[in-house]
Amino acid sequence: MKFSFFDGHNDTLLNLYNNHKNDAESFFNTLSGGHIDYERAVNSGMEGGFFAIFPPPYTSLSLPDPEKFLTPEGYDVPLPEAVDPEACRKVTDEMIDLLYQIETNSNHRFKVVKDSNELEKTVQNGQMAAVLHFEGAEVISPDLSNLEYYYEKGLRSLGLVWSRPNAFAQGVPYRYPSTGDIGPGLSEQGIALVKKSNQFGIMLDTSHLNEKGFWDVVAHSNAPIVATHSNAYALSPISRNLTDEQLKAIGDSNGVAGVTYSVNMLRKDGKMIQETPIGEVVSHIRYIVQLIGAEHVALGSDFDGTTLPNEINDVTDVPKLIEALEKDGFTNDEIERICFRNWHRVLADTWK
């Protein structure tokens, strides 16, 4: 049986912006060096996903190599400094324009969706559905005065942080072995942002957020708790992954954890080794399903934003992962939930 899937997180806009001259038409060609373009995605069964805007105030993003920050037990990459919000706004606005130019150039094949009815109709019509997501809230003014502006521009999913601090919260550094219990919780502005996002119906993403910040979101949000691209700490004890207690809070809220294919977040040793079996992704999915149920697990690849296992070289290999789920004994109903129905549900429960 062939399954479609909805991807919980990709950085394809960043790839286009940095490596393909911010050219929307490139998305409809085969992108050398990238993980997603339109033809490969559609042929693989990708019905849509969260298209992230990550706004580094510089021309390219180079993640520090953990091997350069080794400790006796693993590694400890320093937390980057906060960045200039104005520089982030410029990049963000340009990438929003890029997303809508993709829609314009698509000949009705690609649509930015803003409510759950539009999402369902877009998928039923065979169009690719894109959710506009911010990976980090640097562009939002601390007084929230421009949140409505970005909502009107289509913002429907907001990650409070990337792995750096901002006015609202602090992200976790890449540290192994370590929980995410590093640094303070949400600021007063961060709590206000959670509540205002609830009012607008903007989904909040806790991936990259430290543990105290996560529990502040749980305390102050009235929407499902979501982590778009985070794995199980019990299987890979890296700071970016979620403890059992955090995963249970996601389940209790009727939320979703999107399992990422990032190799260092899959492996027990936390290393950036591409010779990581596809079975490690299945293991994280199985673990979370057994802990909180198949209705609370989804796919959150981090395509175009991370180092992948060789067996998931790009979006065309997602069917291999789905086949591995079938071989592991997941039912068709469970696979449909994991592949797309859980994302549809949590967005319908969040969006106004």
Rank of each mutant, 00 (worst) to 15 (best):
A249E: 09
E188P: 01
F27K: 03
Q124W: 06
R40Q: 14
N19E: 12
A298T: 08
N241F: 05
D328F: 11
A223M: 14
L31H: 04
G34M: 04
F134A: 05
T12V: 13
D269M: 03
N222S: 14
Y58K: 15
R156C: 03
A257D: 02
I140F: 07
S178P: 00
I191W: 07
V139D: 03
N125H: 15
T179P: 03
V281D: 01
G126L: 13
P165N: 10
V289D: 03
V42W: 05
E135I: 04
R175M: 05
N310S: 12
A24I: 03
K114N: 14
A169S: 10
P184A: 09
S163H: 00
I182M: 05
A82L: 08
N310W: 09
Q170D: 00
L14T: 02
Q170K: 10
A52Q: 01
S301N: 11
A24N: 04
A219R: 14
P165I: 08
W343I: 10
E311F: 06
N342W: 06
Q124P: 03
N19G: 02
V218E: 03
N210I: 05
E47F: 09
P66M: 08
S178D: 04
K248N: 06
I250L: 11
D216A: 00
D181Y: 12
V194Y: 05
V172M: 04
G136L: 00
N105R: 15
K114H: 13
I273L: 12
I191H: 09
G33R: 03
D7W: 06
A227Q: 09
D7H: 08
N222R: 14
N313K: 15
N231T: 11
E323P: 01
C88M: 07
N313Q: 13
G159D: 01
V194N: 03
G74V: 01
R175Y: 08
S32V: 13
T260G: 05
D97W: 07
I285H: 08
S44R: 08
D328Q: 15
V346C: 07
K248S: 00
F50K: 02
K153A: 11
S230P: 00
G329P: 07
E25N: 15
V131L: 14
G136K: 01
K320Q: 11
P277V: 08
E86H: 11
D143P: 06
P177F: 05
Q199P: 04
N210G: 04
V113F: 11
N22P: 01
Q290C: 07
D7G: 11
Y100K: 10
T12S: 13
I191M: 10
H296Q: 11
K21L: 12
F27A: 04
S116M: 10
N210Q: 09
I288M: 15
Q127M: 15
A294Y: 10
H220P: 01
E94W: 06
I285V: 15
P57G: 11
D304R: 07
L325I: 10
G136E: 01
I225N: 06
T92F: 10
I102H: 02
Y176S: 03
N22W: 04
P66I: 04
H208I: 00
A324W: 09
S239T: 10
R109A: 13
V217M: 02
V282Q: 12
G213D: 02
N43T: 14
L132E: 02
T59Y: 12
I312S: 03
Q189Y: 08
V139F: 05
A82S: 14
V218K: 09
V289Q: 03
S239H: 02
P80V: 08
S283G: 06
N22D: 14
L186Q: 01
A234M: 09
G258S: 10
